[in-house]
C-alpha cells in the first residue's frame, strides 16, 4: 500500500507541476470556462432567471472544463508512451489512478473557486454565511466525484482513436447524478428559490456515496483498462 501512495504522490506532483509550468489550465481552460459562463448569460438573457439557474450553470461549466483537463492529462501520458513505460516498469496502476485523480480534483477545486467568484459577479448571486459550510462540502465532494469519474473513463479512452469524442459520450451519462446533486445542494447553500440550507445536506450524501463508489470501482477498473 505504501508503494501505491508513494507512486500516487509522485504522479500527482508531476501532473500539478506540469500544469503549473505549462499554464494550460490558467491560460486556456479558465478563460474557456469564463467564456462559457458569459455565453450562458447571453443565451438566458434574464437577470432573475440567471440568478435562479446560476448553480447549474457553474456545475455544467465545471463539467465541460473537466472534460478538457482530463483529455489533456491523458494526452500528456500517451504522447510519450509514459503509461506504457510505467506499466513495463512494474508500477502499480492503482497508484497512477490515485495520483491522477488527486491532481485532477485539485485543479477542479481551484477552477470552482474562480467560477463561484465569477458567478457572484456576473449572475448577482449573494451567498449567505449560513450556507458556506454546505457550499464548501458540496464543492469538495462534487470535484472529487468528477475527478474520479474523469480518470476512470480517461484511462479507458487514453489509447483510443477519436478519444476526444468518445470521452464525453462515456462520461456525460454517468455524471448526471453528480450534476443534479451538486446543483441542488448549491442552490440550498445559496438560498436560491427560497431553499433552506438543511435541504441541501441530503444531496451531499448522494455525492459522497457516488464518490466512494467510483473510488472503489476506479481502483479495480483503471489498472485493467490501462494494462490491455
Amino acid at each position: 500500500m505504501n508503494s501505491v501512495m508513494t507512486l500516487a504522490k509522485a504522479v500527482a506532483t508531476k501532473d500539478l507541476r506540469t500544469e503549473f509550468r505549462s499554464r494550460v489550465v490558467t491560460n486556456q481552460v479558465l478563460p474557456f470556462a469564463g467564456v462559457v459562463l458569459l455565453l450562458f448569460a447571453f443565451a438566458i438573457d434574464s437577470d432573475s432567471t440567471l440568478a435562479r439557474v446560476s448553480s447549474g450553470l457553474v456545475w455544467m461549466t465545471t463539467l465541460f472544463s473537466m472534460l478538457l483537463i482530463t483529455q489533456r492529462s491523458f494526452d500528456l501520458e500517451t504522447a510519450d508512451g509514459a503509461l506504457d513505460a510505467l506499466r513495463v516498469a512494474g508500477a502499480d496502476m492503482r497508484g497512477v489512478f490515485v495520483g491522477k485523480s488527486g491532481a485532477l480534483i485539485a485543479q477542479l477545486l481551484a477552477l470552482d473557486i474562480v467560477l463561484f467568484f465569477l458567478a457572484v459577479i456576473l449572475f448577482r448571486v449573494e451567498p449567505p454565511a449560513a450556507g458556506l459550510g454546505l457550499l464548501v462540502v458540496t464543492t469538495v465532494l462534487a470535484a472529487a466525484t468528477l475527478g474520479l469519474i474523469g480518470v476512470t473513463y480517461g484511462g479507458l479512452a487514453a489509447k483510443a482513436k477519436g478519444r476526444e469524442t468518445l470521452l464525453p459520450l462515456l462520461i456525460l451519462p454517468v455524471v448526471a447524478p453528480v450534476v443534479i446533486a451538486a446543483t441542488r445542494a448549491t442552490e440550498s447553500a445559496l438560498g436560491v428559490g427560497g431553499r433552506k440550507v438543511s435541504e441541501g445536506w441530503p444531496w451531499t450524501g448522494l455525492l459522497g456515496f457516488t464518490a466512494v463508489a467510483f473510488a472503489v470501482v476506479g481502483l479495480f477498473a483503471f489498472p485493467a483498462l490501462i494494462e490491455e
Binding site: A160, L169, P173, A176
Partner: peptide, 16 residues
C-alpha cells in the same frame, strides 16, 4: 441516459 450509456458501450466495442 441509459440509452446513451449503451451507445457509448457500443462505441467502445469499435475502438479496435
Amino acid at each position: 441516459f441509459l440509452f446513451v450509456t449503451y451507445i457509448g458501450y457500443l462505441a467502445v466495442r469499435r475502438l479496435g
